[in-house]
Amino acid sequence: MKLRRRSRSGRLAVEPADPVAAKPPVPTSLKIGAAILGIFVVVAAFAPLIATHDPAFQDLTDKLASPSAEHWLGTDQLGRDAFSRLVYAARTDLIVGFLAALFPLILGTTLGAIAGFFGGWVDTVISRVADAVQSFPVYVFLIALVFVLGTGVMPILVAFTAIAWVPYTRLIRTEILRAKGLDYVAAAVVAGLPHRRILFRHVLPNSVRQTVVYFMSDVILATVTLATLSFLGLGLPVEQPEWGRMISEGRTFLRNQWWLSTVPGLVIVALGMGYALIGDGLAQRLRGDG
């Protein structure tokens, strides 16, 4: 049993762990994942301090330069500093990628909770709409939506939310159906608690584990999909630094300036690893074998 220091109560530091206060250790994968994500967050937050140049400044006399002390990752076809663009792109990809997974989570969880908890025709309607959405090929549907909705962050978030809520709804609905049958829900019903309280305090908190883990993989997917859309020239404005677009634009020069595409690609991989490790660690932690 782990020994815990209890300086606050002034008791001896060697007192055996208080079972009430004891917490399981944090899994290593969670620590590493959080560290990776932390680096990205810091870079995004302090982009103006970290970037060496204005990411939008073009110098056509100095285009496609090789890495140097002045331009750490060289310059692109318009003479913009690739390193600075890479740093600024962290803001776009991190925030849009996260929100593009968060909004579906919120919508999907709400719909799933309603469908599972109340059942009946509400459940039927929600489940059939979910079926309908899922019957479309994801990318075709997504590209069509983004194409119709136009350029910008909002269209992307709307399109993602409209499509990606389905797995959350299914996950939560199933979990809630399971949780509804448990004794502590019956106990809450017998105690006379109102529906809303039972749903939010007793059913939902016990149904979100898988959803949280799924969310971490969905963030990766959303980030990569965002990059893919930009790669295809859809979604975000052309001027906005974005990793997917950097890969796309650098593709032409892969033979001589391979780093223009490769480095943003590796950055996406690193971020994905970070999310994956967090998801893995959370899954481990929530299973209780941390």
Binding site: V190, G192, N206
Partner: peptide, 21 residues
């Protein structure tokens, strides 16, 4: 009568207590 006249003690104390509360 829920929450007033009648209460219940369940068979399985493992499953009858909400693990997140």
């Amino acid at each position: 009568v829920r929450g007033h006249g009648i209460s219940m003690v369940f068979q399985e104390p493992m499953t009858a207590l909400n693990p997140t509360r």
